[in-house]
Simulated assay, not measured.
Amino acid sequence: MSTGLLAQYLLIGLAVLGSVLIVLRKLAPQLTSRWLAAASIRCNQPGRAAWLRAVGRRLQPKQATGDCSDGCSTCGACGTKPPAGAKVEATPLEFRPRK
């Protein structure tokens, strides 16, 4: 295997891994938050190197403050507010039979 082909495989693998992580963050935010918290705890232990502790602090997931302005959407009570003066109409769904 040539060096160029190996580099190509590594770049494709990194792109696929990055895509999987982005999809996981979108579809399973609580799971990835737990993973980040676990990795943060492992990295940010006393006796570790300073750079590793800095990585651990950076990996800590953001905590919800419990107020509706943080946008955590964990309780489902917060929603997007329409702009002032905007008329919001609910449109009913229409189901049409297949032809």
Rank of each mutant, 00 (worst) to 15 (best):
L27H: 09
T32I: 08
P46A: 11
I41G: 03
G13W: 07
T32K: 00
L17G: 14
Q45R: 15
L21E: 13
V23Q: 11
P29M: 02
G13Q: 11
Y9S: 14
R42S: 10
W35Q: 01
G47Q: 12
T32H: 00
C43Q: 05
Y9I: 14
L21W: 13
Q8C: 10
L11W: 05
Y9K: 15
A37S: 13
W51Q: 02
S40R: 03
V20W: 04
Q30H: 00
L52F: 06
L24A: 15
A39D: 01
W35T: 02
S33I: 01
A28V: 02
L21Y: 12
W51V: 04
A39M: 06
P29F: 01
L52D: 01
L24H: 09
S19I: 06
R25M: 05
G18Q: 08
R25C: 05
V23S: 11
G47D: 12
V20N: 02
I41F: 07
G47A: 11
L24T: 08
V16Y: 07
A28L: 08
Q45V: 12
V20E: 04
R42T: 10
I41K: 08
L27C: 11
R42C: 10
S40Q: 03
R25E: 10
S33E: 05
A37P: 01
L6H: 07
K26A: 11
L31G: 01
R25Y: 04
V23I: 15
S40C: 02
L36R: 13
L24S: 10
R25F: 04
L31Y: 06
G13E: 12
G13V: 04
A15T: 09
V20A: 07
S40H: 03
I41N: 04
L10N: 14
R48I: 02
R42F: 13
Q8H: 09
L21G: 15
Q30C: 00
S33F: 01
R42V: 14
L21F: 14
W51N: 02
G13D: 13
Q45H: 06
S19P: 01
Q8A: 15
P46V: 08
V20Y: 04
P29Q: 02
S40I: 03
L52M: 13
L11R: 12
L52R: 13
R48A: 04
R48M: 05
V23M: 12
A37I: 00
A50F: 09
G18T: 10
A7D: 13
L11H: 06
S33Y: 00
A7K: 13
N44W: 03
V20S: 04
A39K: 02
A49Q: 14
S40G: 04
A38W: 10
L14R: 10
A37Y: 07
V16H: 07
C43V: 03
T32A: 00
L14Q: 11
L17E: 09
W51M: 02
V20D: 03
R48Y: 01
L21D: 10
I12G: 02
L6W: 05
A49D: 15
I41P: 01
S40N: 03
A28Y: 05
Y9L: 15
V23D: 09
R42A: 15
L14N: 08
W35S: 00
A50C: 03
L14W: 08
A39G: 01
P46R: 11
G13R: 10
A50S: 11
I41C: 03
L6V: 11
G18R: 08
L10G: 12
S33H: 02
K26Y: 06
N44T: 00
L21H: 10
N44V: 00
S40F: 03
Q45S: 05
A28N: 01
L10K: 14
W51G: 01
